[in-house]
Simulated scan of single mutants.
Amino acid sequence: MPRIFHALALLICALAACALAAPVRADSLYRCVAARGTVSYQNAPCAGNQRTDRVIDYQPEAMPAAAPKSVAAHRRVVSVRRRWYRTTPIRRAVPTAADRCRKGKAKREAALQRLGLKRTFADLSRLDAAVRAACGD
């Protein structure tokens, strides 16, 4: 009988050691739907004003350890980046048709504010022609 107890105790100790050595961590991902139909994913249960649409269980992957860089390698990377920033021309945004139209309308509004109530039909025609030219009408 003592051999059976010894084997059973050894088996229990081995199982306990395996369970403690490699803890398995499982997480849950909640898909929540709000009253307006917007969907959000979160790692906590849904709030009271949202309904839980789906719960997905997963095991997160272990993060790989980052390889330490040498000081010389870091300096080379920084040097290349500095050279690139110095030689790269600054690109300016090209105005689109909508931008030109918006700018033309803003100019017209500014001119109308400046003229006040002393505007003539010729002034309005001139300002509208400029907007039509900018907006492509």
Rank of each mutant, 00 (worst) to 15 (best):
P89R: 10
V39P: 05
S70Q: 11
V55S: 05
R31Y: 11
E109S: 13
V80R: 08
Y41M: 14
A97K: 08
G37N: 08
Y85K: 03
A35H: 11
Y30M: 11
D53L: 13
Q59C: 11
A134I: 00
C32T: 08
R51K: 08
C46T: 02
A73M: 01
N43M: 15
L20E: 01
L115E: 05
A16S: 04
T88R: 03
Y58M: 02
L112N: 13
R86G: 05
T96M: 12
T96I: 07
L115T: 12
R82E: 01
T96Q: 06
G136Y: 09
G37W: 06
A72C: 08
V131E: 00
S70D: 04
L115G: 15
A22W: 10
R82V: 02
R51D: 12
L11Q: 09
D123S: 06
H74D: 04
S125M: 07
H6I: 05
T88I: 09
P95A: 14
D137C: 09
R126L: 02
R82P: 00
T120C: 08
P89M: 13
I12R: 15
I4E: 10
R102N: 05
A65I: 13
R82M: 01
N49V: 10
K107N: 02
A14H: 11
L124D: 03
L20H: 00
R31C: 13
T52H: 01
P2K: 07
K69E: 14
F5A: 03
A35M: 11
L115K: 08
A73C: 01
P89S: 06
V131G: 00
A7F: 04
R108S: 00
D128T: 05
R25S: 12
A26K: 14
S70P: 07
P64V: 00
A73F: 00
A35T: 05
F121W: 09
Y41G: 04
S79V: 08
F5M: 14
T52F: 03
L10M: 04
A7H: 09
Q113W: 04
A65R: 04
A9Y: 05
A47D: 04
R3T: 00
A14Q: 03
V24M: 02
V78A: 07
C46K: 02
P60C: 11
F5I: 12
A34T: 14
L117T: 13
R76G: 11
R36G: 04
V24R: 13
V24D: 04
C101E: 06
C135T: 01
A35C: 08
M63A: 15
K107H: 14
Y85F: 06
D99F: 01
R3C: 01
L115I: 11
A66I: 11
F121Q: 04
I4Y: 04
A44D: 15
L127P: 00
D137P: 07
A35R: 12
A9C: 08
G136F: 07
R126K: 09
A47I: 15
A93C: 05
Y58T: 01
K118P: 14
M63Y: 14
